[in-house]
Design a protein around this nucleic acid. Sequence first.
RNA 1: GGGGCUAUCGUCUAGGGGUCAGGACACCGCCCUUUCACGGCGGUAACACGGGUUCAAAUCCCGUUAGCCCUACCA
Length: 515
Amino acid sequence: MAFCICAQTESARLGHTGCLIRGHSMSRQVVTRFAPSPTGMLHIGGVRTALFCWLFARKHGGRFILRIEDTDLSRSTDDNIRIIEEGMAWCGLDWDEGPIVGDPGQWKGPHGPYRQMQRMDLYKAKIQELLDKGLAYRCRCSRETLDERRKAVEAAGKVFQYNRGLDAGRGCADANHDASESAAIRFRMPTGGDIVVADLIKGETRFPADSLDDWIIARTGEGPGEIGVPTYNFCVVVDDTHMEVTHVIRGDDHLNNTPKQIPLFAAFGYDLPAFAHVPMILGADGAKLSKRHGATSITEYQAMGLLPSAVRLALARLSWTPKIDGKAVETAEEELLTDEQMIQLFDLADCQKSAARFDMDKLQWLNQKLIQRASWQELEPHLRSFMPAEWTVKPDAWKAQAIHATQKGKSLTDMAEALRFAFERPATFDEKAAEKFMTPAVKPALREVAALADYNHDRLEADFNAILERHSLKTKDLAQALRVALCGKPVSPGIFDTLILVGREEVVARLERWL
RNA sequence: GGGGCUAUCGUCUAGGGGUCAGGACACCGCCCUUUCACGGCGGUAACACGGGUUCAAAUCCCGUUAGCCCUACCA
């Protein structure tokens, strides 16, 4: 059987689509896709893959597709699809084609629908085409006989391969079954030689064709003549070509699936897309990232008070080293890339081949740095979900002061917590601190603070120092006493910021009980 | 078992024949300081192992080991 092993060209290695894809146009628009299966929450590893697809498409002025692979009927749910859509949206990974959030019946883009279960007619037609060409065949072997044969081969210490090796001659390949009985459909795989995958990240890898077998492309149908639900490896090939995907960027757990898919592209007469298999993300202990490691779902990261921009950067920096003029980023300053810089710098050639462990410390550092750089306006939409509704909005001057005072926090939750004193009177007081700082000597000074009228920062500082002078107190004495009175604890932003954020009227009210 | 991928400080990584093996995060120390932080400065710390090739190997080759993936009518 003839099929094209099609090693990709140097231009593919460089990420150019050139004449690689389907030959027609020399400069085809780049198209990438993220194709999650809605069988659970949106995993952080999936988000990273999606991010690479998104970055690549954006860099090359191409399109990014979101496609839902819901052919696993038993595990896919509409709820999970919603979770994926919302997670992607929160993360800022907008798709040009795909489902419309919250509306299962609608989609955008010319290649819809973007849920595989809604594309059955296409798949069935393509399977029939393969059947007609003799490139696929009906297999009536039951699960039971398959299990028996598998056991027999494994007992002999060999690998079970359908109709291959010890199982050769026992398959349905030459049986010419008609459609009178229900059957699964198998794809006729080539034998002999290597199937090569020219991967943009992993390089060229070869798989002996004889290590593969005739795999099932469609499950057993409901009744005679019915073609059942096609399997993943089949749907991907059909969809990727029909959606004109030029660059298949996916997790490297799919690298082994690629040699199964390549002969299928050939059987359909399709040219190959470029492949890039990105390494996995591992937990801190080097094991596969699971619930045991803490947060795996993107929604958990959102709940932790992380900025989507920080999550994007942290995820991108796992397995990717941005290079500026051929030199890897060196300083902390250079690490803090904006989305625009990431898009500009992104290159699959600068991606690592090996798996990376998830680094929560780095994520938090990035988050802190990004918070420091943001304006209140940029932060407010994210911050709001961490602030109780009763915390009413204050004037712009207050916002400026607030951001100046609390921006040292590592997370949005830290910031919201650091702002609590500005909205709520302390319910309790730190006894030890009160005892230590609320000395008789400090009270007269406190009384003078209560009398201050001008809450301009510099003026406040000057008046404050004058009070210290009059009472022979150290800054610390008065500042800590004030913190206890205003915040209930000896920790708060700079004391003048604290005063301003609470506001004169409220300062006086909170001071009253101590005078 | 078969096939495939991977291997540099604790973590993310740069470096791809000759480097004191570089950076970032974390950690430790010092400084700053009105609290907590922020910030500044400095420090500890790595080429998985064994064989080759070579004047010279982290770098090239071959093994070994370890981890991961595929080997489903899952995706």
